[in-house]
Simulated assay, not measured.
Amino acid sequence: MTQLLDGRVAIVTGAGRGIGRAHALELARHGAAVVVNDFGVSLAGEGTGESPAEEVVAAIVAAGGRAVANAADVADFADSAALVEQAVTTYGGLDILVNNAGFVRDRMLVSTSEEEWDAVIRVHLKGHFAMLRHAGAWWRAEAKAGRTRAARVVNTSSGAGLQGSVGQATYSAAKAGIAGLTLVAAQELGRYGVTVNAIAPVARTRMTEGAFDTSAMALPEDNSPVVAWLASVDSADVTGRVLEIDGARLTLETGWAHGPSAVAAVGADGGAGGAGGAGARWDARDVGAAVRALVAEAPAPEPVYGA
Rank of each mutant, 00 (worst) to 15 (best):
A218W: 04
M217A: 14
P201S: 07
D234H: 10
A262M: 10
W229P: 05
L189W: 03
D269T: 07
A257Y: 12
G276D: 06
R292L: 15
V242W: 14
L230W: 11
A200P: 10
V266L: 06
A280D: 02
G255R: 14
T208C: 07
M217E: 11
V196F: 02
I199Y: 06
V196I: 04
P220V: 09
V263L: 07
V287F: 00
A289R: 11
L252F: 15
A218E: 04
A257F: 13
L250M: 12
A265F: 00
V242P: 13
D283S: 13
A198H: 11
V266W: 00
V194M: 07
A216P: 04
G190N: 10
A265T: 15
V266G: 01
V227A: 15
G259Q: 13
G180R: 01
T205P: 09
G190D: 12
V194I: 13
S224W: 02
A264N: 05
A275E: 11
A264H: 01
R206T: 09
R292P: 01
S224G: 12
A200E: 11
A280P: 14
S232K: 09
D234R: 12
H258Q: 14
W256N: 02
R285Q: 12
R249A: 15
F212Q: 03
A248R: 09
S172W: 01
R281P: 00
G210P: 08
R281E: 14
E188R: 05
A228V: 04
W256E: 05
V287Q: 02
A268R: 14
A262T: 07
G270K: 00
F212S: 06
D286Q: 06
G193K: 06
A185N: 07
R281Q: 15
G279D: 08
G255E: 14
A262D: 04
N197E: 12
A265L: 02
A218S: 14
A236R: 14
G274T: 05
E209Q: 15
V226Q: 11
I245T: 13
I199R: 08
A174H: 10
L189Y: 10
A278Y: 15
V202H: 14
I178N: 08
S224N: 05
D222A: 09
W282T: 04
A176Q: 08
E244T: 08
G267L: 02
R206H: 07
G193I: 14
T251P: 00
L250A: 09
V196N: 05
G240H: 06
A265P: 12
S224C: 12
S215E: 15
H258F: 09
S224E: 08
R285E: 15
V202M: 10
A236C: 01
W229L: 11
L189C: 08
R204F: 02
G279M: 04
A275D: 01
D222W: 05
G277M: 03
A248T: 06
R292V: 04
G177P: 14
G270Q: 01
V263C: 03
D283R: 13
A280Q: 07
R204H: 07
F212Y: 13
A278R: 08
A248E: 11
R241L: 12
S235Y: 03
A186V: 01
V202N: 06
A280R: 05
V202E: 08
A265H: 03
S172E: 03
L243P: 02
G271H: 13
P201D: 06
G277P: 09
S232H: 03
W229S: 03
D269S: 07
